[in-house]
Design a protein around this nucleic acid. Structure first.
Lengths: 88, 88
DNA sequence: AGTACTTGTCGACGCTCGACGACATGTTAT
DNA sequence: ATAACATGTCGTCGAGCGTCGACAAGTACT
């Protein structure tokens, strides 16, 4: 998430546009752009997607096939592996 | 966005767990999981991230360097290129 | 000095997300 | 048949997001 914030700000500065300009282009408020660049986690997903589109950025969904193979048919180890991803 | 929906549902089925189980693990309601898998766009970003984490999925921020080079110092073409990404 | 632009932040307010519970529909199994 | 589970969908409701407007602080340029 911090990655998104830093990348967005860096990208915007590279483009040489202000938060207000970017906000107008994306169709959101300037305060929202500011919040995203500050790393606010609870922002709506579709707005983030539109923002990244307007910045020429894309986020790809990476599915580690290794884990997929590991999981296949292993109903026993499934819980233990999943628990590694539980709430911090 | 539809990618996320389809991937999440496929991944969950591969893991062989129900929407209720996944919801409990992620810490969201079952209705929310259902909505995401249905492709609802206006969902909160951090919840999506937590969901993907629990599914063993990651989304990477891809920054096409070609565009970055193209943009550099070209304040004239900047608007035209940006306009290609305006509201559909 | 003054103007203009940018960024951070605040207090409202409307709107909708997400949670919860309940219900109807499958689907599976006993 | 009926019991158990999964999924889709519908109310209601509190909580939080996003918008608007305004303000202060910082920078730059005349």
């Amino acid at each position: 998430m911090r990655d998104v914030a830093a990348t967005v700000r860096g990208r915007r500065k590279d483009l040489g546009i202000s938060q207000a300009d970017l906000a107008a282009r994306v169709g959101v408020s300037r305060a929202w752009i500011n919040a995203v660049e500050a790393g606010k986690p609870s922002v709506e997903f579709d707005l983030v997607l539109r923002l990244l589109d307007h910045l020429g950025l894309r986020l790809d969904l990476a599915k580690p096939e290794n884990l997929g193979d590991v999981f296949k048919g292993r109903s026993v180890d499934l819980d233990s592996v999943l628990d590694e991803y539980r709430d911090q």
